[in-house]
Design a protein around this nucleic acid. Sequence first.
DNA 1: TAAGATAGCGAGCGCTCGCTATCTAATACT
DNA 2: AGTATTAGATAGCGAGCGCTCGCTATCTTA
Lengths: 215, 215
Amino acid sequence: MQAAATRRTQAERREATTSKLLDATIGCLANLGYARTSVAAICASAGVSQGALFRHFATRRDVIVAAADAIGRQHIEQFDAAARGLKRDAYRRIVLLIRGLCRTPTHAAWREIMVAARTDTELRVQASQGLERFEAMLIATSGRFLGIDGKAAKRAAVVLLSIMHMFDSEAMTVVVFGNEPLETQRIKWATEMLKRELSELSPPLSPRVGGTARR
Amino acid sequence: MQAAATRRTQAERREATTSKLLDATIGCLANLGYARTSVAAICASAGVSQGALFRHFATRRDVIVAAADAIGRQHIEQFDAAARGLKRDAYRRIVLLIRGLCRTPTHAAWREIMVAARTDTELRVQASQGLERFEAMLIATSGRFLGIDGKAAKRAAVVLLSIMHMFDSEAMTVVVFGNEPLETQRIKWATEMLKRELSELSPPLSPRVGGTARR
DNA sequence: TAAGATAGCGAGCGCTCGCTATCTAATACT
DNA sequence: AGTATTAGATAGCGAGCGCTCGCTATCTTA
């Protein structure tokens, strides 16, 4: 009776193990950096053996690429979920959302992989698809969020992606040397800039959307 | 006669060796990334033995920190030299200058160290001074360049540093997945934005400066 | 010139790395 | 129940790591 309750299919076992490994890999990248994310560290964190890791992934690089894919998916979900709760004229909140996403451990793990991919051809080839998907998703989401398309959507995508780049690099350097007054001013500036851009690009908020009436 | 010509002081020998080592370290960081910048790789590139490296630097980390300092100094010189040749209303050229500096191998080496410093406490403590100096220099240079100070100078610094962050992160991701149309649009947008900001912040170009008359 | 200090070398150390081989455990199928 | 397949663990491998060591070469000082 109890033995049957704990019996899992092979597929379930596989899913559980690879899931643990991917979570552990992301955690190690975030906490230890790329260089120190060894197979031993991943397995210690995941609570599985190295043999099990190599059962499911051919090489260390393969598990890291799989982790990059998982991060990309998480990013897309997080971004979608967060955008859903936002009014489009909540400029400051949009800026803070983007900034906040750049400062997560998951994003730090992503950045570790991207930096490592610069000098590792195999990793780069495999990581590029994930990055491409992430960018495409951001572009699509911004269009949907603003209710625009065509040239205006392209412009908005440039702005939003550029703001993300800005906060990405800021997040990277802030760990080494923080400068709070400057960071605060940057939020303020980015907000003004986003307001100006989105006000020019978007169709007016109509009563049908309920935006104006809500206020 | 000839033997005397090739005789170097201990100080000269030291300077030559450490110089080679620092150049090699920067090159290895740029070409191989942080993880693969081993002591063996540095020494092979510098053409000196590991024993010589450890004569001058206590640890691998020490030589990397020294390289970070050297990069910081180079950055400051490059930026200063480039700013000297610029008119302040050459907005597009300023944008392209910043973008270009973010795409140098030296800057890539810098980024490798910054990313590694996130998860290496010792490295971080030592690298933070270099980053602080670099930021302070940028802030001072932008004020001088624009002929402004006080609040306006602070604002300009936020803008310029933010543009640098933006192109820094772009430079990082572009290696993995480039998107030329989007990059072109970003230059255009950054230029418009910079024009708007600097026009509002700067005192008028006076004949004494020769800016207006030159045109 | 001899003694002392500094620079630099190459071999070897102990350790960690990614990975493989072998064995055991769990599930699936007949 | 017995056999086949998949999943996972443990031990061990060879390569590479950062660093130390004993030594030689070169410069400086007395």
